[in-house]
């Protein structure tokens, strides 16, 4: 259930990103009202005051196509601040494509088109004058395959802050990021060693440390544990859970249990009638897994359809 701030209607009044209005954040705030899922499932509405949640992303009728092939279409959803939103669904229905559109990772791919709108804190992400370096500075991404730079552990984490000009207190920043990624104790004695000597799970946590070192607003995680063994996966999940306090997290995962364990809200992507990827259902995670509204979701989460 989404309520728009009465002052703001993104369709009627597109944001002007270049506008110097300092209070933009206040004015363009989009809110969702969070009714605890328990209320619905127990059938007795408890009169709690609804938790007001701020939306980070507001996606409207999004369609992404490569050349003449449409990868995903008809996606409309909001993503809440400081929560974990999971995107699940069978492969080939545009989960990763959608995720990568949230920080304009597709830019520069020839023949790629993005239709519809993504509003980030009220600003049209694909509007004119939007700087994609600034976009990615605020919306970080961790990829499926760990991709540490062939540098030392320290330099991997310190690289982005240095670029941004955050040079003072760099050591502290690196330590904080590594602690934040639950990697500090394992690497504190060998910060100068090559990052390529770390195990796969450690490399992925290093990539998370690298991403949070510049303190972004959002973290996009593209199947961050799919290349890892179960123990490393567990530690990544544990880590993601703690990161929620500081960052808004969107995670694409193949693993339904992972989504059920981690996410506050879950979006199920599937194929529509034209066999093109789309958003089928989006709700509180409990609801998606226990009482989905759409039969396709139910088939998927109960394993009847893969």
């Amino acid at each position: 259930m989404t309520i728009l701030d009465p002052e703001f209607d993104p369709i009627m009044e597109p944001s002007r990103p270049a506008a110097p209005a300092r209070s933009a954040g206040e004015r363009y705030r989009i809110q969702t009202v969070d009714r605890p899922a328990r209320t619905a499932s127990h059938g007795q509405p408890t009169p709690t005051t609804p938790v007001v949640r701020e939306s980070v992303f507001k996606v409207e009728q999004l369609a992404i196509s490569y050349g003449s092939k449409t990868a995903v279409q008809g996606v409309t959803m909001g993503i809440d601040r400081n929560r974990i939103t999971a995107i699940i669904g069978p492969s080939g229905c545009g989960k990763t494509t959608f995720l990568r559109s949230l920080n304009r990772m597709h830019d520069g791919i020839p023949g790629l088109r993005v239709d519809g709108h993504i509003y980030y804190h009220g600003h049209d992400l694909y509007g004119s004058g939007v700087d994609r370096v600034e976009v990615r500075r605020r919306i970080g991404m961790v990829f499926q395959k760990p991709n540490p730079f062939p540098k030392s552990i320290y330099d991997n984490v310190a690289w982005a802050p240095r670029n941004l000009g955050l040079r003072s207190g760099l050591d502290d920043r690196v330590e904080k990021a590594l602690r934040g990624a639950a990697l500090w104790d394992e690497v504190k004695d060998r910060l100068k060693d090559s990052a390529l000597g770390l195990s796969g799970g450690q490399q992925q946590r290093l990539c998370i440390a690298r991403a949070i070192a510049i303190e972004p607003d959002v973290l996009l995680l593209d199947e961050p544990a799919s290349a890892l063994d179960p123990i490393a996966t567990a530690s990544i999940e544990e880590l993601v859970r703690t990161l929620k306090a500081k960052f808004t997290i969107v995670i694409v995962t193949h693993n339904m249990q992972q989504a059920a364990r981690l996410a506050d809200r879950t979006a199920f992507f599937g194929l529509d009638n034209e066999r093109i990827g789309t958003l089928i259902e989006y709700d509180e995670t409990d609801k998606i897994f226990t009482n989905p509204a759409d039969t396709r979701t139910e088939d998927y989460v109960t394993g009847r359809f893969v």
Binding site: V133, A160, P216
Partner: peptide
């Protein structure tokens, strides 16, 4: 140079 490294760099807000 693997594409993943280039993407990793641009995802960190590098020019």
């Amino acid at each position: 140079v693997p594409r993943e490294l280039q993407e990793g760099a641009s995802a960190l807000g590098a020019t």
